[in-house]
């Protein structure tokens, strides 16, 4: 398990020079290779999504275009005759879950990681092992074991928001990786010593000195965590909670309204992608301005 570490931890040397220092002949060959790869993979990734988007815009007759399905997302009732539209409420729940999970994972992981780097180095191997462990324990195994635990939680609250407790565990390896990469590039000890010699308390060191230097990593961790929560199905489904994915699944099973199904899926995907792209630009700008 710990042996997995080198995967993400190889020294990062941005390949900036790669562009300049190559002979023209090899550069041309490399570019041809790259464009070929990008085209083939681009098609492989884009085609299913485009097909789904096209299907969501299908009119009543085959081959016509219509936005009916999209306009139904907010009011779609499914098999349920009355009450809050289940689709829109599941979207709400999922977004709230993403926010809560992100907040908890940052509060839990960032101070602990910095603290371990600064003061409890001997614990770092164990810590890494624990963070990466969820990668190898299948989510479905967790669900089986979580049954009794969730029985207790449900005595306190029946809200689907309670899913965040497990989602934090699922997101742990991805968030850890992102944060470790960011911390690896910092000389945390020296920063802390400098700040402490200037009179900063440990809380100040962490919040005002180290965290501002790892925004990019924190943002990356948040991105991966949100993407995970938006796409999670297994645990919600088996613990009988309704999140977006579960709702989509049950629509497909019970009332096969393909249009709404595909429209919502496309929207959710586009939303997640836009979120990631925007945040990746935000992260870069921050780093640049600090550069």
């Amino acid at each position: 398990m710990a042996a997995l570490a080198p995967v993400g931890e190889v020294v990062r040397e941005p390949s900036a020079r790669r562009a300049a220092g190559v002979s023209a002949r090899r550069r041309r060959r490399l570019n041809a290779f790259r464009y070929l790869v990008f085209t083939v993979f681009g098609l492989f990734f884009a085609l299913p999504l485009l097909a789904m988007a096209r299907f969501s815009l299908e009119g009543a007759k085959l081959g016509t275009w219509s936005v009916t399905a999209w306009s139904q997302i907010a009011s779609y009732q499914g098999t349920q005759a009355v009450g809050i539209p289940p689709l829109i409420s599941s979207i709400e729940i999922t977004l709230e879950l993403a926010v809560i999970t992100c907040a908890v994972i940052v509060l839990l992981l960032v101070p602990t990681m910095i603290w371990i780097r600064l003061r409890v180095r001997w614990l770092s191997r164990t810590f890494e092992f624990l963070c990466l462990l969820p990668l190898t324990i299948p989510a479905i195994v967790l669900v089986v074991g979580l049954g009794p635990i969730y029985n207790r939680i449900q005595r306190v609250s029946l809200s689907a928001l309670m899913l965040f407790w497990v989602y934090v565990i699922l997101a742990l390896p991805y968030a850890y990786r992102a944060l470790a990469a960011g911390l690896g590039g910092l000389d945390v000890t020296t920063l802390a010593e400098a700040a402490r010699s200037l009179g900063a308390r440990w809380l100040t060191v962490i919040v005002r000195v180290i965290v501002p230097n790892m925004w990019q990593a924190i943002i990356n961790a948040l991105l991966l965590t949100s993407a995970l929560v938006l796409g999670e199905f297994t645990i919600a489904y088996l613990l009988l909670y309704n999140n977006l994915q579960v709702e989509l699944y049950s629509i497909s099973r019970n009332t096969p309204n393909a249009g709404v199904l595909f429209a919502t899926s496309t929207a959710a995907l586009a939303f997640a992608f836009a979120l990631l792209l925007i945040l990746s630009y935000v992260g870069r700008r921050r780093r640049r301005s600090r550069g």
Partner: peptide, 23 residues
């Protein structure tokens, strides 16, 4: 590609099966 990878790696799930179904 990195942003897309971040989404697609996690977003497989239910949606993905639908996408391939219609393709």
């Amino acid at each position: 590609y990195l942003s897309a990878s971040g989404v697609l790696a996690q977003f497989g799930g239910v949606t993905l099966a639908f996408a391939f179904l219609v393709l």
